[in-house]
Design a protein around this nucleic acid. Structure first.
Lengths: 237, 237
DNA sequence: ATTTCCCTCCCCAGAAATGGCGAGGCCGAA
DNA sequence: TTCGGCCTCGCCATTTCTGGGGAGGGAAAT
């Protein structure tokens, strides 16, 4: 990690508004001499957030067409832990190829590296660097700066969460152990009858737990409660 | 990042077995001159994995008593994105305090920093460094090595996933767009009736999607299917 | 010591989900 | 072109879940 980047990261950690993050991606783009630097959250229920160097037209089209659903970068990164080079992704499929063509003509660049970032409560975001480059020089670039990009993506997301989590998204009350047991068993496919048997309690008691958990989570129904508990990390499959 | 650590990370990336990871935590402990270095996955349904420098007695007791459920480190890290200093955690509560006492007498150390790590499919792991130290010197240590620890935790988890995911946990077939729609709406708390209305299709058609998705996922019921889809990243809440 | 959770149990009736039967059209791949 | 997958619709019977009542004991926190 060279000194210049340390300064950029320090600046990032001092960021006090979303505008500072927007500024940071431009600084990063210039620092690495790439075409684009993009940080964006990938979530449906919460309000989306992004700090990026793409043009407004491409961003608008991406959102309008809901490209996140077919974008192989998003889909692929969701399945992986380590940073993903765009070349490694599956670009077969009609939708993916036409999307790729459109992206390239929008000036996104033919090469890209995307870092998946996962936060609490099911948060998922991507930090991406993209450029127009030959395969070998791009490979050199990514392996040289992998650690840097990991750190930048981490601090970028940390800041984004700070600004975003102002509107508290955290669960007010924790679930009781029994409530966790109940939702866990349901999430693992057991019916209420099976789950109550597993726990050695009456089915009614199990229902009380589910209902209590449902209220705490503000869920509409059992499936919703399980989904919320899962994505909030309150239960683990 | 000094050269010594770069070598350790390079060694880590060359690791070819779980024994290498076990070895790595000892190297890291010596390198940082701390009391303990711990990497462990925190998952219920999948087989747990850990590479750590704790004594067997403490590990055994931790597992036996299922301390992960009350350990404020685990509980706290679940809710946070940035590394957590143990001092910041909530140690009130009877169970937490008695656990803390037991941990300290087991030689864990009074200071600790834990890095939450999240992987795909709901994976969650912790990378922890702990020592017996005064507050100020510990603070200096953690702020000096924060970036290092972030990188180490990342590569450690990457390796752990490589070894663990040998037994393929991936879904065989992808879900169709409509199936994704259906499960997404259910995961967001809509009933079948509401969801079918949202999509502008008959309730029966929606049922067909749910059923198809359920079969593809090998789920027992709708809630199970939603849970599987969520934790496999096929749908996003 | 009082309150506030948590755990446990019971009954009932209406709403919703499930499982299995069937059918047709469309599109892309082999 | 034929096969498989996807999207769309309908009906019926059974099981399961949901939402509303209550009720008691225990542990922990303020």
């Amino acid at each position: 990690m060279d000194g210049k980047l340390e300064i950029l990261i320090a600046k990032l950690q001092e960021a006090s508004s979303k505008a500072d993050l927007q500024n940071a991606v431009f600084l990063l783009r210039d620092h690495y001499d790439v075409d684009h630097v993009v940080y964006h959250s990938v979530n449906q229920s919460r309000e989306p957030y992004a700090a990026l160097t793409y043009g407004e037209d491409w961003v608008g089209r991406y959102l309008e067409k809901d490209y996140a659903r077919i974008d192989p970068v998003v889909q692929g990164c969701y399945q992986k832990f380590r940073p993903v080079d765009w070349k490694q992704l599956d670009w077969s499929g009609k939708a993916a190829r036409s999307f790729l063509g459109e992206a390239i003509s929008a000036g996104v660049g033919n090469q890209g590296l995307s870092v998946p970032i996962r936060g609490p409560n099911g948060q998922f975001a991507l930090f991406t660097v993209s450029a127009k480059a030959a395969d070998d020089s791009w490979q050199r670039f990514t392996s040289d700066h992998l650690s840097d990009l990991l750190l930048v993506s981490h601090f970028m997301n940390q800041k984004a969460l700070e600004f975003d989590d102002a509107e508290d998204r955290t669960i007010s009350r924790q679930l009781s152990p029994r409530e966790v047991d109940a939702l866990s068993l349901l999430a693992n496919g057991q019916s209420r009858g099976q789950a109550s048997e597993t726990l050695g309690i009456s089915e009614h008691t199990l229902r009380v737990y589910i209902e209590a958990a449902r209220l705490k989570l503000g869920a509409q129904n059992t499936t919703h409660a399980v989904a919320l508990a899962l994505s909030h990390g309150l239960i683990i499959l």
